[in-house]
Computed example of a mutant assay.
Amino acid sequence: MHAPVSHAIPPQLLLRAYRAGVFPMADHRSDEEVYWVEPRERAVFPLDGFRVSQSLKKALRQDRFRVTCDRNFAAVIATCAEPREEHAESWISHRIEDSYNALHQAGHAHSIECWQGQELVGGLYGVAFDRVFCGESMFSRADNASKVALAWLIAAMRDAGYKLLDCQFMTEHLASLGAVAIPQAQYLGLLKSAAGRPTMTIPASIARYSDSPSPGKLIVQSLTQTS
């Protein structure tokens, strides 16, 4: 357990940065410095273009995971910050982790969790403002767990009137799910067009699905209406 960083980034400063198309990163887990990133090219998910594979459809329809929103934000970001084989160092420093936990407490950062019993086996977290959600990181400890979390997020965003899902940097994995790369200038235009309040918060939209006897089937139905 690390000591809380006293110089966490203030929530309002983080939100101003995101509204300007900029986000913070760090060089390693214990780095107390952050640098502000404005990519030349941005990866985004068209909300009607998420690719639902047959294996993902099966996992969703079977309700293989119990899905929640904001049940344990701190655990999700802490797990995302753990070392991975493909990344020797995490860009989620303790300072960044503390900053997003504070942003979550302020109501502008959300997590989606996938559970098997009482075990957290997958999830994602990101920043919400206006009709925008900026996905930060995800993890999976069971087949399709992070994809299920992403499917729930996209269905919830569509139902709640969100317009833009940012996923920062393009990867082969994101491209296989339907993400597209656009110039930063175009991304800034999409940010402006997504100003305004959604009809519902992401936690409220997730809760509507969770209250269904067969939430996964509703998620598949929602995602395949136009995809």
Rank of each mutant, 00 (worst) to 15 (best):
Q116C: 06
Q118R: 10
L120E: 15
V121A: 06
G122L: 00
L124I: 04
L124F: 12
G126D: 01
F129H: 10
R131H: 15
V132R: 07
V132P: 15
G135M: 00
G135K: 01
G135A: 04
E136F: 01
S137D: 03
S137N: 00
S137C: 00
M138G: 00
M138N: 00
F139S: 13
D143S: 11
S146P: 03
K147C: 05
K147P: 15
K147L: 06
V148K: 09
A149P: 09
A149D: 04
L150F: 04
L150W: 07
I154H: 09
I154D: 10
I154W: 02
I154P: 12
A156P: 06
M157I: 01
M157W: 12
D159K: 13
D159V: 13
A160W: 11
A160R: 02
A160D: 07
G161V: 13
L164Y: 03
L165C: 01
F169A: 05
F169V: 06
F169P: 00
F169I: 07
E172W: 10
E172Q: 09
L174G: 13
A175M: 11
A179W: 00
V180A: 14
V180W: 04
A181Q: 14
A181Y: 02
A181T: 14
Q184A: 10
A185T: 11
A185G: 15
Y187M: 03
Y187H: 03
L188T: 08
L190V: 06
L190D: 08
L191G: 03
L191V: 05
A194L: 13
A194G: 08
A195I: 03
A195G: 05
P198Y: 09
P198M: 08
M200H: 05
M200E: 12
M200L: 13
M200Q: 14
M200G: 09
T201Q: 12
T201I: 11
I202E: 05
I202G: 12
I202A: 03
A204C: 05
A204Q: 11
A204Y: 12
S205E: 15
S205H: 02
A207W: 05
R208C: 14
R208W: 01
R208Y: 01
D211W: 09
S212C: 13
S214K: 03
P215I: 07
P215G: 13
L218C: 08
I219Q: 08
V220A: 14
Q221W: 10
L223T: 00
